[in-house]
Design a protein around this nucleic acid. Structure first.
Length: 868
RNA sequence: GCGGGCGUGGUGGAAUCGGUAGACACAAGGGACUUAAAAUCCCUCGCUCCUAGAGCAUGCGGGUUCAAGUCCCGCCGCCCGCACCA
């Protein structure tokens, strides 16, 4: 019956249909069985997918199929992060409705994903733009508001004065609005925010328990939360002529030990004190406005020169009688951190030093390496930092002299706490999460503004607040704001005319709980059913790009806590295991006409040319696959030529999964050859091996034993590789098993019964071990070899420990640390026997020559080293 | 600037604990089969010396150890994250 080629094009759709028809990937809540929840970050439906999008789904699929085989009740769902700005841009540019555009993209991408043969439970599919989804989100928003976790906050926004609307940071280019080109201003507007800072400590502390997360991601989150311990205290202020001022200046510092080195204070231009002084000071007012005109883009702030302007006020030094510090308004002080005001100690902070040099202020060193003479120690161009020296002591600091930094901090903090002018304080870099967006294509915020009652939540019975369909795009501002009727409602509380909130939620809100919704995708009354989330959550293995290491993952962790406090779930951490995969890259091709698709380019002599007319193509380095550079490969083109199994194999081969991997023609061809090789090898082993019904031969000859051993070593290694998500190594070990089986088939023309049985075992095991990576091929091979049922319903093979052990072992033998020979000896041999045997070896004798061995080191079952 | 990671053949990369460096694959070269091609199979493949064998090799320089890609110290280079955070 043997045909000489595996026909992926015929085989793949056939098996996909069989899986679909038998609903093997459906999952049900079933507390009697152990569960395993595998999730890849759900996609934004931007149009078409290319193979660069496929890598994380394939990795997740390997895990899902493997866990299924291990007996877990596996949930592996898929959905769509469907709200977002690109849909609105499409509406403006092409006149399509955002919803129509989004739905069409979902349909396209769903059919493309199906080509990949993923073991997904499509019954659980959700799209965040479904009213059935976002109505629950609105309900939870109202719950959070009630709990104080959602609130109105004056926030800095980028304001486009021509379009009269708020811009996201990405929409500000070189300080100008992306569409209007107008200079962007900083404005303060009331915006909705989530109180993520309420959980700052918990979010930080729990990180250390997330031991199946990459260290890198945990560190990034730690830095993002940015906890610091310091002191908040206030200075008395006075004017130039020494008249006391009627306000004190409160600052936050982590370096209160350096208080004796203070030579100035600086406050943010947004500080209320500046607002007050600016009334009589046109120059201060101008400085303040100039600062606001910068916008909120960090890039702009970064490039701006550090400048200060004297306020005319002086801070009275708390410990140095008669000393007063000039107070500046400074553009590098942020209103949003600490108190929006600092004291500067130039000797021990580079930024303060630069500022002091610029404005001619004192530089007083107060910390010096232990044993330094204070009279000699000085600071020139570089501030002196603790870490520059091993052990340091306070100098020039009165009652602090001779103390360590920690002792000095403690002494100062205690003094301030004693006299009530200050107290120890913890600060976070983390800010509350502003979620208001002035856009149409997002989840409406379910609030109503009433002149009489204030802000009133939409009653449950009126949820969802649906987006209106008849909107006009392209005008300045938010289409919801312009809609003729949508925002006008009666106040649910007093019945008088009122207006709806027209802001929609940040799309990060949508993706902060979809993993929970997958547990109860059809639930109508509640966002999630408690029995379902209690069973399925947390996600056991979450897979996605490292670009989401901070925001998405932190928001999801916050949202899960908020859901817990609102009574919807019983846990705080949504993702027990996290894996961040690398991207797929591809060379870029370019002619004078512009970027070229790889499929339009071919090799020609020593370069590349276009297929169409042979124009020379310049080849660029491998970069992330992207539509704009056209260095993409479509799943459709692969399915037609190589089959999706070859593509899956290639995506998992060679490169460690967390690293970027380059897509090449040679690579996909190599994967295709491997698919064919497995198919041929299994065919031959089936034809020449034992019958399926024969039982294990009791008497194994050496060759058969070696074959069985190779099979069971492979089981052990590959199981371990997949457990640890080292797919590239799993694939190398699969190659080894294929190579061993193929070589045995080629070398043994006349197999014993035992070897025939070992071949058969090897072939069937190979199929089961390869199945998570190449599932269609595995089904086809399983059928050929007469297996019952489907591979997807088979159990994962188990290694026989007896076969992993060996009676004789071969030890490398070194002389003075260099390998000179090998010793094959009984595993049971003791150290004394090994020592004796080693000294008889030719290689050892040659290497020793005249020298006498002084010592023989035997590391059991590893290595022997003769020291001479 | 701060924090983290990485550096191994022509290439992607292996090497749980310090214990045979280069598994596995790609590329390249040679051969078999074939009228020919494709496919397949076999051989070679870190560098140096003519081979047996030996010497040198995991960015560079030191150190610890019987033994270092792995641990320690100092450089060099690349990548990532954060960035006026007081």
């Amino acid at each position: 019956m043997a045909v000489d080629r595996y026909d992926a094009r015929a085989s793949e759709p056939k098996w996909q249909k069989i899986w679909d028809d038998s609903q093997v990937f459906r999952s049900e809540t079933d507390p009697s069985r152990p569960k395993y929840y595998v999730l890849e970050m759900f996609p934004y439906p931007s149009g078409k997918i290319h193979i660069g999008h496929g890598r994380n789904y394939v990795m997740g699929d390997v895990v899902a199929r493997y866990r299924r085989a291990c007996g877990f009740n596996v949930m592996h769902p898929m959905g769509w992060d469907a709200f977002g700005l690109p849909a609105e841009n499409a509406a403006i540019e092409r006149g399509v409705h955002p919803e129509a555009w989004t739905r069409e993209n979902i349909a396209t991408m769903k059919s493309q994903l199906k080509l990949l043969g993923l073991s997904l439970d499509w019954d659980r599919e959700v799209a965040t733009c479904d009213a059935d989804y976002y109505k629950h989100q609105q309900k939870m928003f109202i719950d959070f508001e009630r709990l104080g976790l959602a609130y109105r906050k004056e926030s800095e926004v980028n304001w486009d004065p021509v379009e009269n609307c708020v811009l996201a940071n990405e929409q500000v280019i070189d300080g100008r609005g992306w569409r209007s080109g107008a200079l962007v201003e900083k404005r303060h507007l009331p915006q909705w925010a989530f109180k993520i800072t309420a959980y700052a400590d918990d979010l930080l502390e729990t990180l250390s328990g997330l031991d199946r997360w990459p260290d890198k991601v945990r560190l990034m989150q730690t830095n993002w939360i940015g906890r610091s311990e310091g002191l908040t205290f206030s200075f008395a202020l006075e004017t130039e002529d020494g008249t006391p001022f009627d306000e004190r200046l409160t600052v936050y510092t982590t370096r209160h030990d350096t208080i004796f080195g203070a030579s100035f204070c600086a406050v943010s231009p947004d500080h209320p004190l500046i607002g007050r002084l600016a009334k009589d000071r046109p120059d201060l007012d101008a400085f303040r406005r100039e600062f606001d005109a910068l916008g909120t883009s960090e890039e702009v702030i970064e490039r701006t020169e550090k400048r200060g302007l004297e306020t005319g006020l002086y801070a009275v030094h708390p410990f140095r009688p008669g000393v007063r510090l000039p107070v500046y308004a400074a553009n590098f002080v942020l209103m949003g951190y600490g108190e929006g005001a600092i004291f500067g100690c130039p000797a021990h902070d580079q930024r303060d030093l630069d500022f002091a040099r610029k404005y001619g202020l004192d530089v007083i060193p107060v910390v010096a390496p232990e044993g330094t003479d204070p009279a000699v120690f000085d600071v020139e161009d570089d501030a002196f930092l603790d870490k520059d020296a091993g052990s340091v002591r306070m100098i020039n600091s009165d009652f602090l002299d001779g103390m360590t930094v920690a002792e000095a901090k403690d002494a100062i903090a205690s003094r301030f706490e004693a006299n009530g002018a200050g107290k120890r304080a913890v600060n976070y870099r983390l800010r509350d999460w502003g979620i208001s967006r002035q856009r149409y294509w997002g989840c409406p915020i379910p609030m109503i503004h009433c002149d009489v009652c204030g802000i009133v939540p939409v009653p449950d019975a009126d949820l969802p607040v649906r987006l209106p369909e008849d909107v006009v795009f392209g005008e300045a501002g938010n289409p919801l704001e312009h809609h003729p009727t949508w925002k006008y409602v009666d106040c649910p509380s007093c019945g008088k005319p009122a207006v709806r909130e027209t802001d929609t939620m940040d799309t990060f809100v949508d993706s902060s709980w979809y993993f929970a919704r997958f547990c109860s995708p059809k639930s109508d009354d509640l966002p999630v059913e408690r029995a379902d989330v209690d069973y399925w959550l947390p996600v056991d293995q979450y897979i996605g790009g490292v670009e989401h290491a901070i925001l998405h993952l932190l928001y999801a962790r916050f949202f899960t806590r908020a859901m817990r406090d609102a009574g919807y779930v019983g846990l705080a951490e949504p993702f027990a295991g996290l894996f961040t995969q690398g991207m797929i890259t591809h060379e870029t091709y370019r002619t004078e006409e512009g970027w070229q698709f790889p499929e339009d380019v071919t090799r020609h002599e020593d370069g590349r040319v276009t297929l169409a007319d042979g124009t020379a193509v310049s080849v660029g380095s491998a970069e992330k696959m992207s539509k704009s550079k056209r260095n993409v490969v479509s799943p459709e083109s692969l399915v037609d030529t190589y089959g999706v199994d070859a593509a899956r194999w290639f995506m998992l081969s060679d490169t460690p999964p967390e690293r970027d991997s380059e897509w090449t023609q040679a690579g996909i061809e190599g994967a295709w050859r491997l698919v064919q090789r497995i198919w041929r090898t299994v065919n031959e082993a089936t034809a020449r091996g034992a019958e399926r019904s024969t039982s294990i031969p009791t008497d194994l000859d050496d060759t058969a034993h070696a074959m069985r051993r190779a099979t069971h070593v492979a089981i052990s290694q590959i199981t371990d590789d997949i457990e640890r998500l080292r797919f590239n190594v799993a694939i190398a070990h699969l190659y080894e098993l294929v190579n061993t089986l193929a070589a045995s088939l080629a070398n043994e023309r006349d197999p014993t019964a035992a070897l025939g049985w070992a071949w058969r075992e090897a072939a069937e095991t190979l199929v089961l071990l390869a199945a998570p990576m190449v599932p269609h091929l595995a089904e086809e091979c399983w059928t050929i070899s007469g297996g019952d049922g489907l591979v997807v319903n088979q159990s994962w093979p188990e290694a026989d420990p007896a076969l992993l052990e060996q009676n004789t072992i071969t030890l490398p033998v070194q002389v003075n640390g260099k390998k000179r020979d090998e010793l094959t000896i009984a595993r049971s041999a003791d150290t004394r026997q090994i020592e004796a045997a080693v000294l008889e070896l030719d290689g050892v004798r040659r290497a020793l020559g005249e020298k006498t061995p002084r010592k023989v080191i035997v590391v059991p079952e590893r290595i022997v080293n003769v020291v001479a």
